[in-house]
Write a protein that binds this DNA or RNA. Structure first.
Lengths: 228, 228
DNA sequence: CCAAAAGTGTTATTAATACACCCATGC
DNA sequence: GCATGGGTGTATTAATAACACTTTTGG
């Protein structure tokens, strides 16, 4: 016996805007829809909410189904609830965005779903209101990446300062000054400089760094903030 | 015949975080819940989504039911979807926040709903996850009010610079320097100075201003941004 | 030896902050 | 004439932006 009988009930979906980053730039993981309506069209990865799971759990499940990844950085963007947004039926969708390192994703799984990493600048027409979701996700990503240390989720555990700068340049879509960038990020003292060097992209080799959660907390607790 | 049969369906609620402002400070419009479960407890104003309306429409309807107001500044905060968030039944709630001028609201309607304007600092324990919604709404309000001209929605059409400053002080919960504040807001050139003076709060009288949408658009289109 | 990326400080400009006195008026 | 809130400018400090050369090393 429910307390709230007599009210309309709805299908609820979660749709995932999955950001990735590599040498080519900022990318989205998109797939060709395998069922009607809009079968064969480009789409975000989605799924329906189940009775026994939270929205956050559903989004994590959908992401894991596609990428094989758990414990990924995810954040709810908003709920999309226009009446005609899905021509198949009335569906309310909670959109989530995720930041992952492309190399961590399970390539076989991704291929099985007929999914592809697409450069953000080249995102095609997507079904329903998915383009609107993507645009809002980028806006949110830009804002948050500028003020919180979430961008690191797009990189491997160990990265060079140049890689880090390229990542921010891809997110913000404009170039940064190398010296000012390094000054700023190093002054915040949230990175740990490793002994190792990366020799892949230069002969000289570049020192590898990793983000240090503890250092970040120290920064915050002394009243400072992260900012690029 | 629906395309998406076989998936669970859910009640969907909208809950409204209604901000107001007067001489006493920043306030929230809260009500004592008139039905089970949690009857008699403090709560946000809410309602259930109907088949024929969008989430935004539902939020606007719920707000109008309580305040009598239409065309109010409203923005979706997020969807809240934890499994046990509402002990009455599984309900997914889309939280919206609204900014209104307290004097514009229909006092009789507000009283009829057993609703009260409560100082933000004195918000009591609310049902379910409503306190969490309120905290996130304030965070969002602070961020957006600092970078977009939404704070004006908390004031009457015509206001003095002191009123404007008090509003921002109430939102940010810290004092601002009078001269720096006036310099900043006037330099942006988004206010229109009226001939009229307000004589209510001083003998000398203070010039009234109003926000000018056109001037704001001019500011934006020349590449500048609003900021307090 | 040279191409290619790594690394490194200083100056100039701009924005943010701190701060105190006179003005107008109703009582 | 005095208490009350309205109104105004400058100097200091901090943050941001602009900018060019040396280093290392594999080929």
């Amino acid at each position: 016996m429910t307390h709230y009988s007599g009210y309309d009930r709805f299908n609820i979906a979660v749709d995932c805007i999955i950001f990735g980053f590599d040498n080519e730039g900022l990318k989205l993981l998109l797939l060709k829809r395998s069922f009607e309506p809009a079968k064969g069209k480009w789409s975000l990865m989605g799924g329906f909410l189940k009775e026994e799971e939270s929205l956050d759990d559903a989004a994590a499940r959908v992401l894991e189904n596609l990428t094989g990844l758990q414990n990924v950085y995810m954040e709810q963007l908003a709920a999309f609830g226009d009446v005609g947004r899905d021509p198949g039926d009335r569906v309310i969708s909670a959109a989530y965005f995720a930041l992952i390192n492309i190399d961590d994703s399970d390539r076989a799984l991704v291929e099985k779903h007929n999914a592809h990493w697409v450069l953000f600048k080249e995102v095609p027409d997507l079904i329903f209101d998915h383009n609107a979701m993507v645009i809002r996700a980028l806006k949110r990503l830009r804002r948050k990446a500028a003020t919180e240390p979430i961008g690191f989720n797009l990189l491997p555990e160990k990265f060079t300062l140049t890689q880090l700068q390229r990542m921010y340049e891809a997110v913000f879509q404009h170039e940064l000054d190398k010296r000012n960038f390094r000054k700023k990020i190093l002054q915040m003292n949230v990175l740990e400089k490793l002994e190792e060097k990366d020799k892949e992209s230069s002969k000289r080799g570049a020192y590898l760094y990793c983000f240090n959660e503890q250092k970040y907390h120290d920064l915050i607790s002394e009243g400072s903030t992260f900012g690029i």
